[in-house]
Design a binder for these strands. Structure first.
Length: 109
DNA sequence: CGGCTGACTCTGG
DNA sequence: TCCAGAGCCAGCC
């Protein structure tokens, strides 16, 4: 069903995609970037403007490609573990088990 | 309109 | 394996 091309800003689209990540799963900056059509850095910049207290967007589910956390490590890790995401001895998420494989088909634009 | 800032990823040495 | 440089987007003074 063709949704009208909403004039949401790139940042808004990024947040939109992030909210598609189910609890207990994680996605990388590159994944989000590929979906909204921008560079990985831009995704990081967008998330950087979020208030950590803003529960509207599960920013903690977005991690780097290494499966680790770039900054504010502790808080983000705590939140992920609370959702059932496990870390190995390298402080990286078990991507094979928790990596989000993409948006829900029913979501399709 | 110019300049600054910021949660990434890849490549080479 | 560790470190530095490049890439060059969007939003806010």
């Amino acid at each position: 069903m063709m949704n009208k091309p909403v004039d949401y800003s790139l940042y808004q689209r990024i947040y939109m995609v992030v909210r598609q990540i189910p609890s207990g799963k994680v996605a990388t900056y590159g994944d989000i970037a590929a979906i909204v059509g921008c560079e990985a850095r831009t995704v990081g910049y967008a998330l950087g403007e979020l208030d950590e207290r803003a529960d509207e967007t599960p920013w903690q589910r977005v991690i780097n490609k290494q499966g680790g956390i770039s900054t504010h490590g502790l808080l983000q890790r705590q939140l992920l573990e609370a959702e059932g995401v496990e870390f190995n001895q390298h402080d990286q998420v078990y991507m094979a088990r928790f990596h989000w494989t993409g948006p829900d088909p029913a979501w399709a634009t």
